[in-house]
Simulated assay, not measured.
Amino acid sequence: MLVISDTSPLTALLLAGRESLLRQIFDRVVVPPAVQRELLCAHDELPAWIEIVPPSAIPSSVSEAGLDPGETEAISLALDLHPDAVLMDERLGRKLAVKHGLKVTGLLGLLVMARQRNLIGAVRPLIQEMIASGNCWFDQALLDTVCKSVGEEWS
Rank of each mutant, 00 (worst) to 15 (best):
Ile4Val: 15
Ile4Asn: 03
Ser5Tyr: 03
Asp6Pro: 11
Ser8Glu: 04
Ala12Ile: 11
Leu13Asn: 05
Leu13Gln: 02
Leu14Asp: 00
Ala16Leu: 12
Gly17Asn: 03
Leu21Ala: 07
Arg23Met: 04
Gln24Cys: 07
Ile25Leu: 15
Ile25Trp: 02
Phe26Gly: 07
Arg28Phe: 02
Val29Asn: 02
Val31Leu: 13
Pro32Gly: 12
Pro33Ile: 11
Ala34Tyr: 00
Ala34Gln: 01
Val35Asn: 04
Arg37Cys: 00
Glu38Arg: 08
Glu38Ser: 05
Leu39Thr: 09
Leu40Cys: 13
Ala42Leu: 15
His43Gly: 01
Asp44Lys: 14
Asp44Thr: 12
Leu46Glu: 07
Leu46Asp: 06
Leu46Pro: 14
Ala48Glu: 13
Ala48Met: 05
Glu51Met: 12
Glu51His: 11
Val53Ile: 15
Val53Phe: 10
Pro54Phe: 08
Ile58Met: 10
Ser61Pro: 03
Gly66Phe: 07
Leu67His: 05
Asp68Gln: 11
Pro69Arg: 07
Thr72Ser: 10
Thr72Val: 15
Ala74Pro: 13
Ile75Ala: 13
Leu77Lys: 09
Leu77Ala: 08
Ala78Gln: 00
Leu79Asp: 01
Leu81Phe: 02
Pro83Ser: 10
Ala85Pro: 04
Ala85Gly: 03
Leu87Arg: 02
Leu87Val: 01
Arg91Leu: 14
Leu92Val: 13
Leu92Ile: 12
Gly93Cys: 06
Ala97Asn: 01
Val98Met: 12
Val98Gln: 04
Lys99Ala: 12
Lys99Met: 08
His100Thr: 00
Leu102Lys: 00
Gly106Gln: 07
Gly106Val: 04
Ala114Asp: 04
Ala114Phe: 05
Arg115Pro: 11
Arg117Cys: 11
Arg117Asp: 04
Leu119Trp: 06
Ala122Asn: 12
Pro125Gln: 08
Pro125Val: 12
Ile127Ser: 04
Glu129Ile: 11
Glu129Asp: 09
Ser133Asn: 14
Asn135Met: 09
Asp139Tyr: 06
Gln140Ile: 13
Ala141Trp: 07
Leu142Pro: 09
Cys147Ser: 14
Cys147Ile: 08
Lys148Glu: 13
Ser149Thr: 12
Glu152Asp: 04
